[in-house]
Design a protein around this nucleic acid. Structure first.
Lengths: 218, 218
DNA sequence: GCACATATTTACACTAAGTGCATTTTTGCA
DNA sequence: TGCAAAAATGCACTTAGTGTAAATATGTGC
């Protein structure tokens, strides 16, 4: 597998994308994808690490070189898509209020290309109590990354408490919107279902921005 | 062990507190306490389920009759104390705004009797990445219970989305306050350290109530 | 192209987690 | 006291997860 003829000895970007790194990333991805295949075909808890390794074409031991367990492998899938939210956040202008940036970034979640895999993952993992925690971890991971990105934007003087509370609250709104939407529409990914999801996101973050005043009791 | 001479055939309360239930609860508690003893003496990851069972004076198999694993046993300890928050919430007048009730309930966390065990648990579990997720679950559990309590208070017409977003945000503030406090003061439980913690809680929920407006960038 | 150093994968063996099942012990109650 | 139900236990088994050393693949200098 040659290709990537660009750059041989040059430090193309600051971040070294060496061949080994790329290979490792590909292997990691292959394992995670294999886990998803089995999750789809056999359901939560219907397969073992050995099955995943076989599906991915690696040894059982190699699986554990990349992930600490099945949960982590599936969580990496959620991360992959939740990372879109983070990317969107980084793209916002630096002088925009953090809350507004986060609001826009969250709306990215309602994009069909992003929502589809996440919704499927949720529908598949919700059946198992044990796998539900891998979602928890994915949200937590996303929260931490938003905190890091916001801290980077605001500089050293950032108020750590405010940062954490805000990021946590925003993600809580995302969780709430997704949870309610999921209970209402299942894994329905039709445009109008997505529109509902998007509306829930807007509503939830709107409530957050107003300090949950009027509509809480309505 | 007789005692509890009150009520023989009478359904004392709606919730049947039969003798067997009490015994099971005691065993469950004994196992969780044994886990804490070992966590203290050997640190995270320094003991096995078999050790816990031995410490609690039960068989390994019995341990698994009560908990799905070490994580769950430790999470039950966190639950035990986080439940104080919920209890406090329920005690608030029904016509009080939910956010205010939650604020007061959260302050209960800064009570020394409550904070001490939680802070210790956090200090002990923070060392292990794996055990950190048992905290996550405990917070999540607390969130769900607050949602349930608030729904009960607001009646059927409650807005599910607003409820979840608010409860999640409030808990996020609690997590943020505890996290920041913990980074600043470690497991210091002195009165002035507790005061700092309490102040963080007040600040975080205050920010939430104002929609994170002014102080976020300060 | 070749050889070497290094990174990655793999096989193997081992401890511990978690579960099903049959059996024994305990407990509440008449 | 005796009995039926519940809880605890022992045992066997599959799977998770890890350390270690050998084997294989990969990048680099010449």
């Amino acid at each position: 597998m040659p290709s990537t003829d660009t750059a041989k000895t040059s430090p193309d970007t600051a971040k070294a994308e060496s061949r080994r790194e790329l290979n490792k990333a590909a292997t990691r991805r292959a394992i995670a994808d294999a886990a998803l295949v089995l999750l789809r075909s056999r359901g939560a808890g219907g397969f073992t690490v050995e099955d995943i390794a076989a599906e991915a074409g690696v040894s059982r031991r190699t699986f554990f070189n990349y992930f600490t367990g099945v949960d982590a492998a599936l969580a990496s899938l959620a991360d992959r898509f939740l990372d879109n939210v983070l990317e969107q956040f980084r793209l916002r202008p630096a002088d925009e209020p953090v809350l507004e940036s986060a609001r826009v970034a969250l709306l990215e979640l309602a994009d069909p290309m992003t929502a589809a895999p996440i919704a499927e993952l949720f529908s598949l993992t919700n059946s198992s109590q044990a796998l539900g925690r891998c979602e928890l971890e994915a949200w937590e991971h996303c929260t931490e990354q938003i905190i890091a990105a916001a801290r980077e934007r605001l500089g050293e003087g950032a108020n750590e408490l405010a940062l954490r509370a805000m990021a946590g609250s925003i993600i809580a709104c995302g969780k709430a919107a997704m949870g309610v939407w999921f209970e209402e529409r299942g894994a329905d990914l039709s445009p109008d279902s997505l529109a509902v999801f998007r509306q829930h996101l807007v509503t939830a973050v709107g409530l957050l921005a107003t300090g949950f005043n009027a509509p809480a009791t309505a």
